[in-house]
Design a protein around this nucleic acid. Structure first.
Length: 294
DNA sequence: AGAAGGCCCTGACCGC
DNA sequence: TGCGGTCAGGGCCTTC
C-alpha cells in the first residue's frame, strides 16, 4: 500500500541510481500493467538519459533528455529491485524472497531497465495495479492521470484555509474528503486514519461541518499539522529502513510499528484505552477510536 | 454535478 | 493438506 511516504522513499532510493544515467535497454515481459504500455514504449526509452526524478502525489516521474516524462505508479504491490554489480538490492516497502532462479526472471517481474553502466532495475508487481506511461513534458498538465490532482500536503500552499475552501458545502465524511486526490495529493487509507486519530476528529464527521461563519473550526489547523507530521515521520522511518536495506528483510517498514489505529481493531486506543473500532466507508476499512475522535 | 459502487488483480489468511 | 471464500486497496469508470 504505497502512499505518499512510501512512494517518496522509493523515489529517493532510485534517484542516485537513475539520475544522470542513460537507459541502454528495456525489456517488457508483458503488454502492460493496469493499462497497456504506451506505443513503442521500450524503443522510445532506449538511449534516453534520465535527468531528474521527482514525485507528484503517488506518482514517480522521470524527466528524460528527450523532453519526455516517464510516469510510474506502484499501484498496490509495485516495487523496484536494483542490481548493481550483480548484487540485488530491494527498494520499496515490501520485500519477499523470490524463488526465481534469477532476479528479473520471476513470474511478476514485468519490466527491466538496463543502464549504460550495467545496472539493472527490475519492476515487480504481482497485482499489476501499477502504471507506466511516457509522454511529452508539454502534456504533463493535461495528462489524464495528473490533471486535477490537489495540493501536495507537504507543500507550503497546503493549509487550513485551503481545506476549508475545498470542504465548503461537502456532505461527504472527512475520511472520504481526505482520501480524495483532487483535494490532497498522496494520502491513502493508512495515513488518513492516522491523521484523523491524531487530530481527534471522527472519520464520519461531514467535511462541511469544519467551516465556521467566518473562517473555520480551529481543529482544521490541527488536522493540517497532523497530516504533515504523520507524513514527515513516515518518510523519515522509510528512509532509515532504506539505508540498511542490505541488512534487513525489509518486511516491516519502520513506521508500521507506530500505527495508533490502522489495522488495530479491538486493540486498546493508545490515548484512552478503549477498543479501536473498524467501519467501512466507501468500501474501505476505517479504523478509529469512538471516544477520542469526535 | 457530486456521490457511491464496481472493477481490475493476486496473495494471504481463515474456516471447514 | 486442500480448497474455496473473503479481504486488501488506488483510481478509473459507470451508474444513480
Amino acid at each position: 500500500m504505497p502512499e505518499l511516504p512510501e512512494v517518496e522513499t522509493v523515489m529517493r532510493g532510485l534517484r542516485p541510481v537513475l539520475e544522470g544515467h542513460q537507459i541502454a535497454h528495456v525489456t517488457l515481459r508483458r503488454s502492460g500493467l493496469r493499462f497497456p504500455f504506451p506505443l513503442r514504449f521500450a524503443d522510445r526509452l532506449a538511449g534516453k538519459r534520465i535527468d531528474t526524478l521527482w514525485r507528484r502525489a503517488k506518482y514517480i516521474l522521470a524527466s528524460l533528455d528527450s523532453g519526455e516524462i516517464l510516469l510510474i505508479h506502484l499501484g498496490m504491490t509495485g516495487r523496484f529491485t536494483v542490481i548493481e554489480g550483480g548484487r540485488p538490492k530491494n527498494l520499496g516497502e515490501f520485500y519477499f524472497e523470490t524463488a526465481a532462479a534469477e532476479v528479473g526472471e520471476g513470474l511478476h517481474d514485468h519490466v527491466a531497465l538496463t543502464l549504460e553502466n550495467g545496472t539493472r532495475i527490475i519492476y515487480t508487481d504481482p497485482r499489476r495495479f501499477g502504471v507506466m506511461d511516457l509522454f511529452p513534458e508539454a502534456e504533463a498538465e493535461s495528462h489524464k492521470l495528473l490533471r486535477g490532482i490537489g495540493l501536495e500536503p507537504l507543500g507550503n500552499a497546503f493549509d487550513a484555509a485551503y481545506l476549508a475552501e475545498r470542504f465548503k458545502g461537502k456532505a461527504a465524511p472527512l475520511k472520504a474528503a481526505l482520501l480524495d486526490q483532487r483535494i490532497i495529493a498522496g494520502l491513502g487509507n493508512i495515513y488518513v486514519c492516522e491523521a484523523l486519530h491524531r487530530a481527534g476528529l471522527s472519520p464520519r464527521r461531514k467535511a462541511g461541518t469544519m467551516l465556521r461563519k467566518r473562517g473555520h473550526d480551529p481543529r482544521l489547523d490541527d488536522l493540517v499539522r497532523h497530516i504533515r507530521e504523520v507524513l514527515a515521520e513516515a518518510i523519515l522511518a522509510g528512509g532509515s529502513t532504506l539505508q540498511d536495506f542490505a541488512h534487513t528483510d525489509g518486511s516491516a517498514g519502520a513506521f508500521q510499528q507506530r500505527f495508533l489505529v490502522y489495522d488495530r481493531e479491538g486493540q486498546p486506543c493508545m490515548r484512552c484505552g478503549q477498543a479501536i473500532e473498524r467501519l467501512v466507508q466507501s468500501g474501505r476499512s476505517t479504523f478509529y477510536c469512538r471516544h477520542c475522535q469526535r
